[in-house]
Design a protein around this nucleic acid. Structure first.
Ligand SMILES: [Mn+2]
Ligand SMILES: [Mn+2]
Ligand SMILES: [Zn+2]
Ligand SMILES: [Zn+2]
Lengths: 136, 136
DNA sequence: GTTTTTTTGCAAATCATTTGCATTTGGAAG
DNA sequence: CTTCCAAATGCAAATGATTTGCAAAAAAAC
């Protein structure tokens, strides 16, 4: 359940770099940076250029397979599969927790009605203090 | 109603640059960039350095008087008063519409219960096609 | 008014991201 | 299995928003 297989979109070639990037995105538990993918692949012994990673992330995002977002006090973009796009971030330790069962869908109807927009996507970022940090 | 007066937070000095920046943020209808503030002030005949703007925005955000956000396909930060932080963006024309009566508060309780976070803030960005662009 | 501390402006530095270009690769076609 | 061409990659250089060091200007304190 919840499994989401990434695939190389129609019209694009299958390359080992492309597949490696997809694999990293699949196993990531929350939005990650291009640099993170780079290091992760270096670990796996896969040599790849950062610009290739950026070019692929741009493509994947354009095709709707990944979602780009920015986090508080970070000046780098993060990318994730759509089902990991809404999250909680702890302001103290940086822990990230994915919000499942996105509550947004309930609003959607109301927003369409009030503003007349045809809604194609959204992202929600929530800041707070995680349970562990609250104890400290 | 809904009026929100910005003020220079306790411990910081009152300077004409600071006040000018606050004024621009107050009259903005949606999140704006540092560059936007810069040009707006140039119009008003106020000479100010971009780095002064960035330094003040950082301070205001740290003090919670403004909220920083990033928009799809833009690599610049935007800043707004907290009540303008949730918005709809048209993917075609870029029009921005503020979401009042933020629906998030209803979720808040649920999130607190499920994840145990002490929630301090959030931001919601919604993408779609505005009514005008739908007609084209 | 003098002193002390903050703030500003300017120029230089940062650093994530993008881009140009030569080279390699995927896969369609024969 | 070769041939061929468009797509993809790597590398280095460029970009552009944001940050920073430092000396000068301005605010609040004394
Ligand atoms: Mn930066
Ligand atoms: Mn940039
Ligand atoms: Zn924490
Ligand atoms: Zn539009």
């Amino acid at each position: 359940m919840g499994e989401q297989k990434l695939f190389i979109p129609k019209g694009y070639r299958k390359t080992k770099q492309r597949e490696a990037i997809l694999k990293v995105l699949e196993r990531a538990e929350y939005p990650i940076t291009a640099e993170h993918i780079f290091m992760e692949l270096k670990n796996d012994g896969i040599d790849i250029s950062l610009s290739t990673i950026y070019r692929n992330l741009e493509m994947l995002t354009k095709e709707g397979l990944t979602v780009k977002s920015y986090m508080m006090n970070e000046d780098k973009a993060r990318y994730a599969l759509p089902d990991k796009k809404n999250y909680l971030v702890c302001e103290k330790c940086g822990k990230i927790v994915i919000i499942d069962n996105c509550p947004f869908d309930k609003f959607k109807e109301e927003l369409i009605e009030v503003h007349g927009f045809d809604i194609t996507g959204h992202s929600i970022e929530v800041y707070g203090i995680c349970p562990e940090c609250q104890k400290k």
